[in-house]
């Protein structure tokens, strides 16, 4: 039993996209058509010459109260014992209800298989073997930090509990387990 979580350090993300490429190859997503599990959008703040460019790595938030699981009519979406939100591809009928319900735009329809696909934290293919998710292992800036939120010695525990890393839209009460360290921007 664990409670897997990720911390995104937007101060050290350089926007190289290595995590996207690693995820696509590890998990065989439909990247040729732009359907993939993780994205790194960029934002510019301020006016020249005081400009800050911020990259915000995005993926499934693996919420403690996942709205996608609540709405699923077949029970294909579920949260497993380690707190990872997954989809049973055998049961999923591809109705896209969960895509609409997810406030973090984490899900997409895999058109080859006709089922919903999403980030799994590489649960079956890496985490169960004691390895880190592909995006975390390849990150050059140590901007993605993966760990167990119930282990007081882990880096994610310290960052999340100290308030350095914060959740996105905590007002939705979904309790996301992906945390973000803010980068100071020019006002």
């Amino acid at each position: 039993m664990a409670k897997y979580a990720m911390v995104m350090d937007t101060r050290s993300c350089i926007g190289c996209g290595a995590c996207i490429a690693a995820c696509d190859l590890e998990n065989d997503t439909e990247w040729r058509d732009g359907r993939r599990r993780t994205h790194v959008p960029e934002f510019f703040f301020g006016e020249f010459p005081n400009v800050t460019r911020v990259f915000v790595p995005r993926l499934c938030m693996h919420c403690e109260n996942p709205p996608c699981v609540t709405v699923c009519p077949t029970g294909a979406s579920y949260k497993n014992e380690d707190g990872v939100v997954l989809v049973h591809h055998e049961i999923c009928i591809g109705c896209k209800y969960c895509i609409v319900a997810c406030p973090y735009l984490a899900r997409y329809l895999d058109e080859r298989k006709g089922v919903i696909d999403k980030c799994t934290f590489c649960y079956d293919n890496r985490v169960l073997q004691g390895r880190q998710p592909a995006c975390v292992e390849t990150c050059v800036g140590h901007a993605r930090i993966f760990g167990d939120l119930e282990d007081p010695n882990s880096e994610v525990y310290k960052l999340a509990k100290s308030g350095v890393a914060v959740q996105l839209r905590p007002d939705l009460l979904t309790e996301p387990k992906v945390f973000y360290i803010r980068r100071a921007v020019e006002e």
Binding site: G15, G17, I20, A21, D24, L25, W31, R32, G34, E42
Partner: peptide, 10 residues
Amino acid sequence: DLLISIARKG
């Protein structure tokens, strides 16, 4: 093509 697909607009 994988590298092109992760390239940004800029």
